[in-house]
Design a protein around this nucleic acid. Sequence first.
DNA 1: AACGTAATTCCGCAATGCGGAATTGCTTAA
DNA 2: TTAAGCAATTCCGCATTGCGGAATTACGTT
Lengths: 259, 259
Amino acid sequence: MSSNPDTDEEKDRLFVGALARGLRVLAAFQPGEGALSNQVLAQRTDLPKSTVSRLTYTLTKLGYLSQDHDTGYYRLGLAVLALGSTVLGSYDIRRVASPLMREFALDNTISVSLGMRDGTDIVYLETCRSQARVSVQLTVGSRVPLASTAIGRACYAILSPAERAALAPELAQRYGGDWPAVAARLQASCEHYAQFGYSESFGEFERDVMAVGVALPSPVPGMPVVCLNASGPAFAFNAEAMRKQIAPALMQLARRIVP
Amino acid sequence: MSSNPDTDEEKDRLFVGALARGLRVLAAFQPGEGALSNQVLAQRTDLPKSTVSRLTYTLTKLGYLSQDHDTGYYRLGLAVLALGSTVLGSYDIRRVASPLMREFALDNTISVSLGMRDGTDIVYLETCRSQARVSVQLTVGSRVPLASTAIGRACYAILSPAERAALAPELAQRYGGDWPAVAARLQASCEHYAQFGYSESFGEFERDVMAVGVALPSPVPGMPVVCLNASGPAFAFNAEAMRKQIAPALMQLARRIVP
DNA sequence: AACGTAATTCCGCAATGCGGAATTGCTTAA
DNA sequence: TTAAGCAATTCCGCATTGCGGAATTACGTT
């Protein structure tokens, strides 16, 4: 009867399959999309139509989905937004960091972001954009790869050897044949971080975007590490400007956020 | 066996109780809180401890909760944040509105917010804060009452008579004995809106905070109405400044967002 | 009116999720 | 070191719940 893809979970008597299926429906919605039909939801979740109908009915009653009166299509409901903002509100560091980040973005005409590691990704907890236009408009909740971004490399640089060892299989799976080259660049970035106190990603994650990253000192016990990223367009910031001006300012911002 | 509080739902064969219970666990977390124990979750959700254990186990496996290694306490996971930001990303209007709102906040040294009606509340979809300190630090996902806020009154002002009639029982239930007085103020606000094109809330929702609200024209078909709010401290903005300077500028902003 | 398709509802079935009891794990006090 | 207290987890018998395929309904198009 079960349709979980993970056979370990199929045999896991503690796992609540109906809850998992319901969340799978919510997760079927992608950023930037509008409303989805039952059929699309069934396709994306690989669930039977009657199962999807029951789940969408329940989620709509609870406010996690809303149904368009005209088309019958579904979109994520405001109850989901409430949960999302509750997550953000649970990170104390954002209250301290946000005003300082806005000031930094203004003073330096650069975008600055705060993020946290989640597996081989970094998830943005806060982002303050400069007025300059850059290609990637990353927002809170966005995920970027750890291996090719300045913020990700800063996070990786302050992992313990045990944590890096635990992460290696996930990275290897993600990068496949490219992993040796990626690993070499990560190692070089660690050395750079150890020597200079910040990491770099110049045009590697996003073409023509220059970025530096810094880890916040003394993370809260029991919490994953949190890092800062400053990024701007290559036409406005050359490598020297990033190294001589932005990187020191970002390290100073980190010290102001966590004195 | 069911522990749903709504007896209609208990008898509703289409309703998926396990999903509802799982979401109830997620909704137990409040903004500004950190991690919660199993016991607190059981208390807040009114579910047996073994039920909560099973649900938190499932939610943790799926990334919707994360468990602190030291204390065993739970906090909302980053998968919830992803859903929250997907909600925001599904509102096209935010992409257009956000840059214009930031510019407005800067130019006028005032906070500006975009919100949508959800029952008798307004939910914030975007907020751009001025540098001036105000008491209420509302963020995306925040709910404010429709009846006592400028943005709420603007939303109410453009509801059809049928929509207002449908909303009246919910408002009556919310305000109880105060409802007649609240209804009178809402009615007066509608008349003000009809005459001037904006609504006011001077020190009514939050002491010493002056606010005006405007509905965006021609809402997207099938979408709830979206409104703007501009608010600042009374020491910086008296009634005349709000009426002569801010309200016209906000109406102009609305026209720039939806030409 | 007929057809096609999406969506919902039905219904028989048994797996799943329930909750109280039992057990485990941890901290604190004696 | 031992005992007690409490939170949290796991067990387990039970039957409700949720499943998915079939049937039905709803709607748009021809």
